[in-house]
Computed example of a mutant assay.
Amino acid sequence: MRRVQRRTAVGFIALLALLLPTALPAAASPPFRDDVIVLDGAKSAEGIAAGKGKTFYAGELLTGDIFRGDIRDGKAKRFIDVPKGRMAVGMKADVRRDLLYVAGGGNGKAYIYNTETKATVANLTLSTKKDSFINDVVLTDDGAWFTNSKYGELYQVKVSRWGEVRKAVRTLTVKGEAGAALAPADFGLNGIAAARDDHVLIVAHTKNKALYRVNPWNGESSRIQGLNLEFVDGILVQGSTLWAVQNMANKISRVKLAGDLSAGTVRDVITSKHFDIPTTVAKFGDTLAAVNAQFNRPASPHEVVLVPADD
């Protein structure tokens, strides 16, 4: 498998402890200054989302603050200074409604922000169970689904076409192997994506090193065969291609999914000498933007690393 190395310009395990020589080819991406974008002032990081054009949003994990940057000019700065007590883990941007959905981590919450006004549109409690960790989110036509890495549950938040958030949260119990009880130190359900016009959810399971299909109506799950994805974290799906971020392994696997989503094959492994425990990823044309979480590392600038998507 081909490995990609990039040049520079300028802790997941720590999180568990809290809870218990070239630029990109011109044809591959829009012009940008550097392959590494520093989240100026960030003391932690975890989530990233693609916004309008080449804009991205990234979260400061332990404070919940939101950064905004642009992959063309290679800059990012603090954008939303949120109230104390929040976290920012996985996130997705709804560019049609100017909304940013953020998984709230260890407080069992989810937050929705307006990316024009910076206001908090919704502050939702998804789970009150002890040690819940709301980890990631995927958008669907009628709202969003969030994962809980400590329990076999998914949470659906519905949003109208005008951006009105319904306060009632639907809890979906995941059945089968993907929803099995976990030991206190384990992380289960993690990254999440939607496929087949939102009729199937695909969920990464960190402990099982696996991906699962989940029926969004009854919670039935089945493993996607042929994959062994150690440290699997955030995932992204477009058509039959899935990108799986493997945080402590410092790589992103590009997976070809079978038509019925029953199996997958790793077609490529994307690496960078600048990866420092990447956790989640956003896509801009032929460019992936992965955020470095740097868990269990000495303090250093937190970064977004740009690599080819190789699709």
Rank of each mutant, 00 (worst) to 15 (best):
G64A: 07
R97A: 08
M87D: 12
K75S: 09
A103Q: 13
I71S: 04
G64I: 05
A93E: 07
Y57G: 05
K77N: 08
G104E: 11
V95Y: 06
L124F: 11
A76V: 04
R78E: 13
I71P: 11
P83H: 02
I48F: 00
K118F: 06
A88C: 10
T125K: 11
L99M: 12
G104Q: 13
K130G: 11
T128A: 03
D81N: 15
D94N: 13
I66G: 02
I66Q: 06
I48P: 05
K52W: 00
D94L: 05
A88M: 09
K129A: 12
L126I: 09
K130A: 15
D98R: 14
A103W: 15
G74A: 07
K118P: 11
A50T: 03
K118H: 15
I48K: 01
G74V: 03
G64L: 03
L126Y: 12
G47W: 11
A119D: 15
K52F: 00
L126E: 14
G104P: 14
R72M: 03
G90T: 05
L124R: 09
G59N: 11
D94K: 10
D131F: 15
D70L: 10
N114F: 04
E116N: 15
T63D: 10
L124E: 13
G64N: 05
L126V: 00
A76L: 04
G106H: 12
F133M: 09
G64D: 08
A93S: 07
S132P: 11
T115N: 09
K130D: 15
T55W: 07
T117Y: 12
I134K: 00
S127Y: 09
L100W: 09
V121L: 02
A49F: 02
G64S: 07
F56K: 12
A110R: 11
G105M: 12
I134F: 09
T115Q: 07
R96C: 14
Y111A: 07
K75C: 01
N123I: 06
A110V: 06
N123V: 07
E60L: 02
N114H: 07
A88E: 14
N123A: 05
A119G: 12
A110Y: 15
V95M: 13
N135Y: 12
V121R: 10
A50L: 02
N135C: 07
D98Y: 14
D98F: 13
K54S: 07
I80V: 02
D94C: 08
F133R: 09
K84M: 03
T120M: 14
M87K: 10
G90I: 01
K54L: 00
